[in-house]
Design a binder for these strands. Structure first.
Lengths: 236, 236
DNA sequence: GTTAAACTTACAAGCGTTCGTTTTTATGCA
DNA sequence: TGCATAAAAACGAACGCTTGTAAGTTTAAC
């Protein structure tokens, strides 16, 4: 057998990247075999090499694409805001919002860095630093303008990032809280943390789904998942 | 060749667990081969099986030991405090303090859960839940006594845990800040987050090392490390 | 002299990757 | 438009290597 009818290179590559993202987020880079990946795509292992150079290149491509898009979208989200408090609120809303939507990408991009070879690792770390700088600049600016009160920019930035990124580990789309509610809760936590009276609407008013709806949704979600290892880790 | 002079079963097992912790934290469970582990200990791969049943059992043993000790030590740290704010401060100090000291254990226990088989995974999750409950109870109690103001217990607890656990990803023992300074910064962030006026001493007064000392220490640390991949991930 | 703890050797399975082949699609020319 | 030809995209088999683990052997310790 050979080329299948209707096979398109671009479509296959897309399927490989999507399946790779899924399997890496689920099992980790090392634990995902190329035969496993190929089976998920519906081709043979060797055929992967019509679309990717190596397994490592697939990983680094996924991570870089995610992080570059992240930076681009963040800049767009921050654009137009000048007041430090506004910018921080925009940052939190953006970070939590996209991390809730792109959990697989986040998982791979944060937990599989150790699988990267030296030079690839260095490049990704540089990207991450660029992203973090957006936050540290907001914090520094807010402090300089006497809008924020906090101790140490770097530690505070890391603390905020870790807190916000944590949502990926427990969020379920059909869970009790809406995305907006989760964003609001975190926004308020962060703003209070840097000493700004938050003016975010309360989650109770806008975001929380009705109890009955949430319960049935949660039950459905539970039943659907394959019982074991739906998720890797949660910070404990 | 065979048994070496001075070889003791207990000592070898300890060395295996320590090396396993180190290698798993560095490269991940899947990426750590038993031959690699054996070499680190100074024995042959087959000899490992005089001390451990399987690779998986080594992992689950390390994780369970860490988490059980964590719960035990937390209960000891909380003992004697009644006021919710005091208890929360004690929690933060304990969590950050031990996580700074036991970074390898934390890494393995939080990032290698996906490598656990079904039943082992379930047991560890149960332990983690017990630990988290200590925090949610403090939060609920503080809210009931009108000492705390926050939105949602579960989300707030997860947010706090993620934030505090994040220190493992960037802390270096010879870095700019002392352990106590880091604890203080996080304590203040958390207490502000739940609406309590913190009375923690400022980091500037007590914890920050002198600039000269920190710089030379940091340089030494950098030179010592093998340049590449000293650390796996940081939440971005 | 029994047991514990190391050794060496080997297995079967799985790994990422390469290669030659086959079939479909796209392209250039009549 | 029709046809030869090149390129694309799949296949299956195989490569050399590593993996976790088992088994039998050898030597030190109790």
């Amino acid at each position: 057998m050979a080329r299948k009818t209707g096979a398109s290179g671009a479509a296959t590559l897309k399927a490989i990247r999507q399946a790779g993202l899924k399997l890496m987020a689920q099992h980790g880079y090392e634990a995902m075999s190329l035969r496993h990946l190929a089976a998920e795509v519906g081709i043979q292992a060797g055929s992967l090499y019509n679309h990717i150079a190596t397994k490592q290149e697939l990983l680094v491509g996924l991570i870089r694409a995610h992080m570059e898009e992240l930076i681009r979208a963040l800049d767009a989200a921050l654009d137009g805001h000048d007041d430090p408090a506004d910018r921080l609120r925009a940052f939190v809303a953006f970070h939590v919002g996209t991390h809730l939507l792109k959990r697989q990408e986040v998982y791979v991009s944060t937990f599989e860095l150790r699988a990267l070879e030296r030079t690839n690792y260095a490049k990704v770390v540089r990207l991450r630093r660029r992203y973090e700088q957006r936050l540290t600049r907001i914090l520094d600016d807010g402090k300089a303008r006497r809008r924020f009160v906090f101790d140490d920019t770097r530690v505070t930035a890391y603390a905020i990032l870790a807190m916000l990124t944590g949502v990926c580990t427990w969020y379920r789309p059909k869970g009790r809280l809406s995305r907006q509610a989760i964003i609001d809760i975190h926004t308020r936590l962060v703003m209070k943390g840097v000493g700004v009276k938050s003016r975010v609407r309360t989650a109770a008013k806008i975001g929380v789904k009705s109890a009955a709806k949430a319960k049935s949704a949660a039950a459905k979600g539970r039943a659907k998942r394959p019982a074991h290892k739906p998720r890797p880790a949660r910070a404990a």
